[in-house]
Design a protein around this nucleic acid. Structure first.
Length: 654
DNA sequence: GAGCACTGC
């Protein structure tokens, strides 16, 4: 019924309308005063408030870089760190790498001159390994803290410890409105005065300041009755907007590739029957799995007499900003990582978004002029949504975090002051895994040298163990390659929807019967020898050129870590290879992999499913795996890297 | 026959 109604009657307007606002400049004096006076300043500012680009410049001008100190600005994403640095360098009339620089994994554009440094929060945590008090910095600004990424949360915990020892350090946390008090409460601790006036909540520790964003008002509309099929409903809404609303591009939020492809197809089909005189529709997909080239279409200016319809995942909510969007259609769901501590399996599940997410999505409509947001759910449903998304640290495998904290000298994880503590089961499970890998002892202390070395390697604990075990199996060169390829997380091959058969046959060329890991090894060896790191060769074989170049970098970095530990890496790629029996070598590699991934070992069943060796849990291979046979339900993606080459070994055990 | 949101050292 609802789907047959005209949208002007089935959508009802929201009660709340955000006001349009002013720039940051008029807050310059108060911002500087707060930073001068309090150790912690929480800056609340929407997109377009200029906090990321202007605030570091104000601090620089105000003398926070005297005595050779630096200002750090952390970002959760690499691209943000580079683009913001470029922008600020322009405004400060210098080149990137001079007064303004950035530092991300594999790219360090800073020099002795650099005073304002943009970096990923993961990178600043790395720096803390060498300089535990982060003493080079006078001010550290943690940007986009409201996203609550794993690294941001760990960093905030570390910073709280550091300010106790460095009272002169200044911390700025940029947050969304909703979480500002939570951040302040965290840093203020006992100083926090819940009964005080809002301006005095933080005692002597900190203050909150709100900046207005340069945002246009967005009219939000809800469905009167729930939609049965939100994909169908999204398509209908696209056409309703196209027929009834003024010009302006449309951004549709859905959860994943399958829905997006279906929507693109439906819009294309129905667009064919539009009246020849009406403007045409240009539907474009946007998700992380697309190559950069494919993603670029989204940023191209809209052609004359055309309306762009960008159908996107969550990627457009925080990571990517597209100009010219006037209409947003929000399905109200997103795929989020979930971790089941009882099985140790990480999955991706579509769940209802939070109110904060919904607001963020709506805001995407108001960047260029007043816009409209069509929510494909009722206002009642919206009221029942959680205020904020559960932070990652409460729904992930935290074994890597435990290792990282221990490497930073924080031994008592349970007593560590997290902004939000991970649930006890996650902590227990993490210690169980680390103990079984030999990384921690009976007293939960890092073992030496195994545990301390594992903590330093930039790979997850299971793979770290495999790397450190490799010399014993005489396959370190190969394992280095496999670890680097696994780090690419399934981006080795480029997607080709139009020709799945061809894509499959290309993949089979590199396939070996030992499984996915050895197939990766094959691909890498072909890339660096036959492929000669050539982009055309990659295109011909449907391989992701950029991903493989990245594998080369990661491999190099891991190798340097190992050499720093005094482990020699004997490269087997060229000369020695001939003298080793390949079958025997493959077996050594598989044995080595089981030293880290035994918890994911499973035995293949006659029907093509798998039973885990430890729990007898039935699983299906992921379709991207060579071990994929015939499948009814999906396979948790985290296992496709860990489990699959081990299946044969699982069989041998059983 | 069927699939993977996003980020990071």
């Amino acid at each position: 019924m609802a789907s047959e109604q005209d949208f002007s009657t089935s959508f009802i307007p929201a009660l709340y309308k955000p006001a349009s606002l002013l720039p940051i400049a008029r807050h310059k004096a108060s911002l500087l005063y707060l930073v001068e006076t309090y150790p912690v300043t929480i800056v609340v500012g929407q997109t377009g408030s200029g906090k990321t680009t202007q605030l570091p410049q104000y601090l620089h001008q105000a003398g926070w870089c005297e005595d050779g100190k630096l200002i750090a600005v952390t970002q959760p994403r690499r691209v943000a760190a580079t683009t913001v640095a470029t922008r600020v360098a322009e405004e400060m009339r210098c080149k990137v790498g001079e007064a303004v620089g950035y530092s991300i994994r594999f790219e360090d554009l800073t020099s002795a001159e650099t005073r304002v440094k943009f970096l990923t929060d993961g990178m600043l945590l790395r720096e803390a390994l060498v300089d535990p008090l982060l003493s080079r910095y006078s001010v550290i600004m943690v940007d986009e803290a409201h996203e609550r990424s794993l690294s941001t949360d760990v960093l905030l915990g570390i910073l709280k410890k550091i300010i106790k020892k460095r009272p002169e350090l200044r911390i700025i946390v940029s947050s969304a409105t909703l979480q500002a008090e939570e951040f302040l409460k965290f840093f203020a601790g006992d100083e926090y005065q819940p009964d005080a006036e809002p301006a005095d909540l933080g005692g002597k520790v900190g203050r909150i300041i709100s900046l207005e964003g340069r945002m246009y008002p967005v009219d939000t509309l809800f469905l009167e009755a729930p939609a049965e099929d939100y994909v169908e409903r999204a398509v209908k809404t696209v056409f309703d907007i196209h027929n009834q609303e003024e010009e302006g591009d449309i951004l549709v939020f859905l959860t994943g590739r399958e829905e997006i492809d279906r929507t693109i197809q439906l819009v294309s089909e129905r667009a064919a029957s539009l009246h020849p005189k009406t403007p045409s529709l240009l539907p474009l997909p946007l998700y992380a799995g697309l190559t950069t080239d494919q993603q670029m279409y989204v940023f191209e200016p809209t052609p004359q007499n055309t309306r762009k319809v960008i159908v996107s995942t969550n990627i457009a909510e925080a990571s990517v900003t597209i100009d010219g969007i006037v209409y947003v259609i929000d399905c109200g769901f997103a795929k989020l990582r979930a971790y089941d501590p009882s099985t140790g399996i990480e999955t991706l599940t579509a769940v209802p978004i939070s109110k904060a997410s919904a607001t963020q999505r709506a805001g995407r409509a108001g960047r260029t002029r007043p816009g409209k947001c069509f929510r494909l759910y009722t206002q009642t449903t919206h009221e029942q949504l959680p205020e904020a998304t559960v932070p990652e640290i409460q729904r992930s495998n935290i074994a890597p975090i435990v290792m990282q904290l221990k490497a930073l000298g924080i031994d008592n994880i349970v007593r560590f002051d997290f902004l939000t503590s991970p649930p006890a089961e996650l902590v227990i499970r993490a210690f169980e895994l680390l103990f079984s890998l030999g990384a921690v002892d009976d007293y939960a202390k890092l073992t030496k040298p195994l545990g301390t070395r594992m903590a330093e390697l930039a790979v997850e604990p299971m793979m770290a163990k495999v790397l450190l075990a490799a010399p014993m199996f005489k396959c370190l060169s190969e394992i280095l390659t496999i670890a680097a390829m696994v780090s690419l997380q399934g981006t080795v091959w480029v997607q080709d929807h139009d020709n799945k058969k061809a894509a499959e046959s290309h993949r089979r060329k590199f396939a070996v019967e030992e499984g996915d890991h050895l197939t990766y090894l094959n691909v890498y060896q072909a890339f660096v020898t036959k492929g000669k790191k050539d982009s055309k060769w990659c295109r011909d074989h449907l391989l992701n050129y950029r991903a493989l170049l990245r594998a080369v970098s990661i491999r190099g970095q891991l190798k340097r870590y190992l050499e720093r530990f005094g482990i020699q890496v004997e490269e087997t790629l060229s000369s020695r290879q001939e003298t080793v029996d390949p079958t025997r070598q493959a077996q050594q590699i598989q044995r080595c992999l089981t030293t880290g991934y035994f918890a994911h070992a499973a035995k293949m069943q006659p029907d093509g499913t798998f039973k885990t060796v430890s729990g007898g849990l039935t699983l299906h291979a992921h379709p991207s795996s060579l071990m994929f046979v015939s499948i009814m339900s999906t396979f948790p993606s985290s296992l496709n890297t860990g489990l699959l080459t081990l299946l044969r070994i699982g069989k041998q055990i059983g």
